[in-house]
Structures are given as structure tokens and as C-alpha cells.
Simulated scan of single mutants.
Amino acid sequence: MTDAYVAIEGERIIEARARSPGTARGEIVFTTAYTGYEESLTDPSYAEQVLTFSYPLIGNYGVREERFESDNVQPNAVVSRELTDDVAEWLESEGVPAVDHLDSRDIVTEIRDEGAMKCGIAAGPDATEEDALAELHECKHMSDHVDIGKQVSVDEHTVANEDGDGKTVALVDCGAKGSITSSLVERDAVVHRLPYDASEDDIEAIDPDLLFISNGPGDPENFEQAGEIVEEYVGDVPLAGICLGQQVVANALGGRTTKMEFGHRGVNQPVRDLRTDRVVMTTQNHGYTVADPGDELEITQVNVNDDTPEGLENDELGIITRQYHPEANPGPNDSLDFFDDVLALAEE
């Protein structure tokens, strides 16, 4: 049954089955993760994107809220070879269009060969090809979403583990996954979660032992305020960053970031530590990368597949950043010691 249409750049139309009705647009990307679909679908880094699963069956162990990384489904739409009823009903309850019964491998291959593309989706009994094309024509490039941080950040300052005895962390929330906070709280840190556009006064009021820039969606150059915070406190307060956070730190300290062809999204990305030559498997979700770290930051880890920077450090300034997700939800736990390392910075 065809009652859904996916339109991608070049005005190619792919017929599909509607599992959650509606229209949507966004940059179409793929993840190679074969488990952890609940975490992926609630990851704020997927905002303004259409998420395609390369694994053919999504939903084979149900939907459990305790696995969520945020309060909402984050992609604008979802594409899969097959979605179970549990996932389809969840997406419909969230108002997120979803389609299946198409060749997702073909879409993944096209994204791999052509890069992430604009996409429009129309799903439901009244959907037409023209509806999908209309969405495609209205779709913007990720870099054009200049205030995307407002969509995914907290609205106001919140505190986790307020009575903890550990270090005080100022977490600038550019779209933070919930498990970043959990990983810090597990180590007894007091985590002050601040909006993406937090001011220097907000940081001063906390007097943190550690400044932490979170992951998030889109172009790091659109997170100017977070970069200004880094510039203000570098050398005075230890700095950590994950994913978009690494890119923001690099830009703020004279480096340069660039958009990747199709990014890294999955739970099986190999990373090599240049100091120890150890390789770990990591969870990743990003479409931008550090092209040049500048003079202040040393590349300490690289992606085995394409040599892009996965870790940046400056021992004298007290900076540790990672392009991947050490909290690893979903994914392998090879790099959880990152949180011990950054809290040790604060101890020093």
C-alpha cells in the first residue's frame, strides 16, 4: 500500500507506507545503530533532520521511557525498512511523521555517495507526491537554522544532585543528552544545567569547578554565546566538551569547523588514541567536524575510518573534549572514563 512519499534533492520521489501521518522536512541522514532506537529518537542532536535507520527492523524490543535521552522525539520524521506497531504508535503520539516499506538500504547508499540532502515527507491517506515536493522545496540547510539551540535547550537554569558532595559543573545545554547529566551525577557532581545562551553572569553565579559544553544539533558556528563563554573562562576554569561541544571549543580557540559529507551516526565508530595507540568503539552523532584545531589544542584521538579529530586537549589550560559520546547511550562503554578524567581536571 502506498500512502506516503519521500522526496529528496534532485526531486526523486520514493513511495512508502505511512506509519505515522503528517508532513515534514529536514536534512535526511542515516544511523548504523542496530539497537538503541529509543535513545537515538530522543537525542536532541537529531533536531531538524529526517532520521533513516540502516538496520531493517526498528522496534523489536518495544518502547521504554527510562531509555529516553530527552522528553520528546527529536527528528522531524523517521524512515525505516520496517517499524513495529509500538514504535509507530509512539511516533504518532508525538506527532512525528514516519514511513516504512521502502528500500532503506538504497537511501543509505545514496546519502553515503551524495552526502546528507534536503528531504520532504508526506504520509497519510491524503498524502500526494506534490505534498512531499512542497516540503522539500521549503527545506533549509542545517547551517541556516541559526537559532536551533533554542529548540533543544532548557528554558531556565536547573540543578541535578543539588546536595551532592562532588565538584560543581556548569553544563551549557546546547541540546544535551540526559545521560551526560546522569554520568556526572553518578560521580557525585552537582550539575547546573544552563540554557545554550547562558551569560557570563550566569556562570559567575555558579562559580563552577568545571565548565562543560554539551552536544547539540546543527552548525557549531550558530552557537556564538557558548563560544564566548569558552573564550571568557579558558585558562581560569577547566573546560570539557562533547560532540558539538568539541567543535564550539575549537572555534572559540582559533580553530575551524566544517560540514561533513554524511557525518558519523552510529554505535560502532572506531577511535584511536594517539598517545596510547589503543582503539575503542564509540557512539557518534554529528554532521560537522573540526577541520583545524588551531594552535591551542592538540589532537589526541582520531577516527580510524577517516582520521577526523575525535579528541582535543590542552593540559596547561585544562581542556579535554571528545567528538564522540562517552556516555554511550546507546552503545559501547569503552570511553566512560572520560567523565573521571574531566572531574579529575576540576580536582587539580
Score class of each variant (00 low, 15 high):
6 V>M: 04
12 R>A: 12
15 E>F: 02
18 A>T: 13
25 R>F: 05
29 V>Y: 00
32 T>S: 14
33 A>T: 03
33 A>K: 07
43 D>M: 03
48 E>L: 11
51 L>Q: 00
61 Y>L: 08
69 E>F: 00
77 A>E: 08
98 A>L: 13
101 H>F: 13
102 L>C: 11
109 T>Y: 09
116 A>I: 00
119 C>R: 02
130 E>F: 01
133 L>Q: 09
146 V>M: 13
152 V>M: 01
158 T>R: 12
163 D>Q: 13
166 G>A: 04
168 T>H: 13
177 K>Q: 15
199 S>C: 08
202 D>P: 02
202 D>W: 07
207 D>I: 05
212 F>R: 10
218 G>D: 04
221 E>R: 13
222 N>E: 06
228 E>T: 10
235 G>N: 10
240 A>D: 10
240 A>N: 11
248 V>Q: 09
265 R>M: 15
267 V>M: 11
270 P>E: 00
274 L>V: 03
285 N>K: 03
286 H>L: 07
286 H>W: 00
287 G>Q: 14
294 G>M: 02
305 N>C: 10
310 E>H: 13
314 N>M: 05
317 L>K: 12
319 I>N: 02
319 I>W: 04
324 Y>G: 05
324 Y>K: 08
327 E>N: 08
327 E>P: 04
331 G>A: 06
335 S>N: 12
337 D>P: 01
338 F>R: 04
342 V>F: 05
344 A>G: 03
